[in-house]
């Protein structure tokens, strides 16, 4: 049987040890990053919403409107339309829309793409006031980037 006085002393010492940990922490440097004034670097493989990749030769999208991404998407949030223009061997996209309200950033579309025409963006500052702000028109984004 433990003596009650011994237990009180041991108990008190355990509290002092715990307090010692807290006090040591008190003198350690501050690591908080003051967002939005400063922000951390995003990792290379960060999965943001998808974006179209530009063909370095033509400056246009690499997308061939094969609709693989549309089929692979578990949330049904991609809509692609394409036409075969005269003199071209393959189709090119005329419309590439993503409903980001449904997207779960799984990346299935990026993986199935046969021409590697899709990539993840580094955009994580996503806040909006309307649902429509998240209906992304990727072709339009690519064109406005051109300018």
């Amino acid at each position: 049987m433990k003596s009650p006085i011994g237990e009180v002393i041991r108990g008190f010492m355990s509290l002092v040890t715990g307090m010692g940990v807290t006090i040591r922490q008190f003198f350690k440097p501050n690591v908080t990053v003051q967002y939005p004034h400063a922000s951390l670097k995003m990792t290379g493989r960060y999965r943001g919403h998808i974006e179209l990749v530009r063909d370095p030769a033509t400056g246009l999208s690499l997308c061939i409107a094969c609709k693989s991404c549309e089929k692979a998407c578990p949330s049904d949030c991609i809509a692609v339309e394409g036409v075969k223009r005269d003199g071209e061997k393959r189709k090119s996209a005329t419309d590439f829309k993503v409903d980001f309200t449904k997207c779960s950033l799984c990346g299935s579309c990026v993986e199935v793409c046969p021409t590697d025409a899709l990539k993840f963006s580094r955009n994580y500052n996503l806040a909006g006031t309307s649902r429509e702000a998240y209906y992304l028109d990727l072709l339009k984004r690519l064109q406005t980037e051109n300018k």
Partner: peptide, 12 residues
């Protein structure tokens, strides 16, 4: 070890 000192051995 720090967790042990801070929490696990704490009498409370």
């Amino acid at each position: 070890d720090m967790y042990r000192a801070l929490v696990t051995d704490n009498i409370i």
